[in-house]
């Protein structure tokens, strides 16, 4: 088991290295000379050379990359030209928790609604329950989330006034305020996943329920709920986690859109405003952080498999 984990860790580091090369090259390839941007339109040759030297831009590219990577690992990500904020603090302590909270809350909503919906659809296959659940699931998938977000804001925020339409309150500061602010964005982002999870649960459970071990469990006199939830659902978790893992990237992408619609100060918002302001080093930090996040989440999904399926564990 440790060997597999080490191999996986090696792969992960390799991927992160590639991400870092890509985002470093991005900065190098971006139009404009950072020195001239910093100095403004009026500068002397001496001050240009001095700043170039200070920034290390007279070094070979590979050395610059080395410095940059070392700084990145140390948490020295530079300062924003516009807000003069420390980018590391902005990204990791301010934006990242917002995005993670939003994503986690959305996933929770999706699981809590999606799994029972899928189970009901499978158990009452081809009945009205199934038709309704499948329609809702496909509807959730088909509805673009930015549009759903706007509709929710319009109906529940502006029209009925039940929920705030923008802003973020950290749930760890004020739990109910936080939930209240997160409700609409999380539903917006989660709706798509409700559909996905319901459909995967339905089809996987139907397949599992056709397996001989389910028949064998019934033949032993086990009650229906036990057959479904203990024997059935445990075997459904595998395909479900595979799909959730594959869709984590989509979740981060969806979070960007949702944050913009609801003005949440998360990673998506940070990257969007950096793009609009052409603040390359913030974009770069965003790319790196998203890369790390994605890779770490995938690593966690892989470890979950081993935990869930004894067939994947190495023999002791």
């Amino acid at each position: 088991m440790w060997q597999a984990t080490f191999t996986k860790l090696g792969q992960t580091l390799l991927v992160l290295l590639l991400v870092s090369v890509a985002s470093f090259s991005f900065l190098k390839l971006a139009p404009g000379d950072p020195v001239t941007i910093m100095l403004g339109s009026d500068y002397s040759k001496a001050s240009y050379d001095q700043l170039t030297q200070e920034l290390g831009l007279d070094q070979p590219v590979i050395v610059q990359y080395g410095h940059w990577l070392a700084n990145f690992v140390r948490g020295d990500w530079g300062t924003s030209y516009i807000t003069n904020q420390n980018i590391f603090e902005l990204a990791v302590f301010q934006a990242l928790p917002v995005t993670l909270t939003l994503a986690a809350f959305s996933l929770l909503i999706a699981l809590v609604i999606g799994i029972p919906t899928g189970v009901m659809a499978a158990l009452y296959r081809n009945s009205w329950v199934d038709v309704l659940a499948t329609t809702l699931a496909i509807g959730g998938n088909a509805f673009p989330s930015f549009y759903l977000g706007i509709i929710l804001i319009w109906v529940f925020g502006v029209g009925l006034g039940w929920f705030p339409t923008l802003g973020f309150v950290a749930p760890w500061d004020d739990f109910w305020q936080g939930m209240w602010h997160l409700a609409l964005p999380a539903i917006t982002l989660g709706a798509w996943y409700v559909g996905l999870i319901a459909r995967i649960t339905r089809s996987s459970l139907l397949e599992v329920m056709g397996q001989p071990y389910i028949l064998a469990a019934k033949a032993r006199g086990e009650p229906g709920w036990r057959v479904v939830w203990v024997h059935g659902m445990r075997n459904v978790l595998m395909p479900l986690i595979t799909v959730i893992g594959l869709q984590l990237g989509g979740m981060l992408r969806g979070a960007v859109m949702t944050e913009v619609v609801f003005s949440l100060p998360g990673l998506g918002m940070m990257i969007t405003s950096a793009v609009l302001n052409r603040e390359y080093i913030v974009i770069q930090a965003g790319i790196m952080l998203t890369g790390v996040l994605f890779v770490v989440l995938n690593l966690m999904v892989d470890q979950t498999y081993q935990f869930l399926d004894p067939r994947l564990r190495r023999r002791k």
Binding site: P212, Y213, H231, R234, N235, L308, P310, R311
Partner: peptide, 10 residues
């Protein structure tokens, strides 16, 4: 088929 008639996860 004893392979498929036993729950693989238990």
């Amino acid at each position: 088929e004893p392979m498929t008639a036993l729950n693989p996860l238990k």
